[in-house]
Design a protein around this nucleic acid. Structure first.
Lengths: 224, 224
DNA sequence: GCAAAAGTGTTCTTTGTACACCCATGG
DNA sequence: CCATGGGTGTACAAAGAACACTTTTGC
């Protein structure tokens, strides 16, 4: 009989980098938050494992892939999420020594197989920018287009042209104006926007934002 | 402890329709081929279940999604494949009453949950046409561009313009000439082509074939 | 008045789409 | 000679990519 576990690739954008959430148990390597299945729907088991180990609750999970583990007697179903770190304080669970965000491009040695899951999560996230308004989850209720662009640039790992970005975001109708920011420091104050209720029909056009990316990494997931 | 099973959405193109392979056990509804996991890698378990129940071997499987089943005490990991029906004769396994291809748009009542898996498989297959030379798996070693186009039209469920199709396929460099067919019946004999070793780098351009499709069904797989 | 960030349009290239006729063969 | 399927090119529309200067503020 096969054991089933769930594991989570939870990402955030911070300090200009894309980070993953890792946990450490006494005497073990850093690992993705993970847990057993307890007969709830898989996504519920995943949410519980995350809550128990990291204190993070109420986030939207998306299933990634199911991996063979431990000489094939374990199946790990992986989930991914993108959240705002500052809205989800970390609280290490009972047998967790430490919970921390790590930059995706500077990860410690991970538990076996977890690097694959992180890779899948990263690829899927980049692909999603092509058709879903991902960044909205990361920003405060109102934000400037500069902030929005910065998030996209970190996720995609590539510079975007400001004029094209603004044209596309505004043209897609996914944001609406929300006054003007009075910001510290010099520089012209930016207009604020808020996300217009995530209307997926309209959002189709948003794939123009860095559309090339969404198509480039057409990852082959075939199992030989 | 959770039970894990594998199930397979195996598709083919036949008589101008896209078909799915279903099996029937005594006293049960039609269902996808499925089986338990026996501690091999999941893809191996899936291949074995398929071989045991349908006689089909040596095909390329791609993992689709993992579903909750039976009040959440079962996890079903689904795989998909696209194969040439005439190269894989059907041989019902021990406890299988019947194995048959069914047109995707005229399915019988299926075991619970299996319709979802079929839906996922279909969506994924259409999406793949945008970047992978799927049809190559279905045709004999040499084929005409007319045959190739017919396969794409069935998979996509939409008519393609012949001139654009030829331009794109030839421009993508995924096929090379292989003489001329002497075919039965009237009509100008067609040139034959063979697939040029599936060079994925080059194939990138193939997404121009029906590229719109690949992007249209950006299926949301998020789990609330 | 200058450093800093915000805001704004146009041109060119590439890609996608629509469309109609001649060609070679079997019967 | 005609019915059948094979083969070919061009023009227009849409999307993507590249690019530089003016505006508003804090100090």
């Amino acid at each position: 009989m096969t054991q089933v576990s769930v594991e989570l690739v939870v990402m955030t954008v911070q300090d200009g980098a894309l980070d993953v959430l890792l946990v450490r148990r006494p005497g073990n390597a850093w690992a993705l938050p993970q847990g057993p299945t307890l007969g709830s729907p898989l996504s519920v088991d995943a949410a519980r494992a995350l809550a128990d180990q990291t204190g993070i609750t109420d986030i939207r999970l998306e299933q990634l892939y199911s991996f063979d583990r431990d000489g094939d007697t374990q199946v790990a179903v992986s989930y991914m999420a993108l959240i705002a770190a500052d809205r989800h304080p970390l609280a290490p669970g009972p047998d967790i020594v430490e919970v921390r965000w790590f930059p995706l491009h500077d990860l410690p040695t991970l538990a076996i197989g977890h690097a694959d899951a992180v890779g899948y999560g990263h690829a899927r996230l980049r692909a999603k920018t092509a058709y879903a308004p991902i960044a909205v989850e990361l920003l405060p209720e109102t934000f400037t287009l500069g902030e929005l662009q910065a998030v996209y640039e970190v996720v995609l790992g590539e510079h975007l042209d400001t004029r094209n970005f603004r044209r596309d975001v505004l043209g897609a109708g996914i944001v609406e104006e929300a006054g003007t920011a009075r910001r510290p420091g010099p520089g012209r104050p930016a207009r604020l926007y808020r996300s217009r209720g995530t209307d997926f029909a309209v959002v189709a056009r948003e794939r123009r934002i860095a559309g090339r990316i969404g198509r480039t990494d057409a990852q082959e997931t075939s199992t030989e």
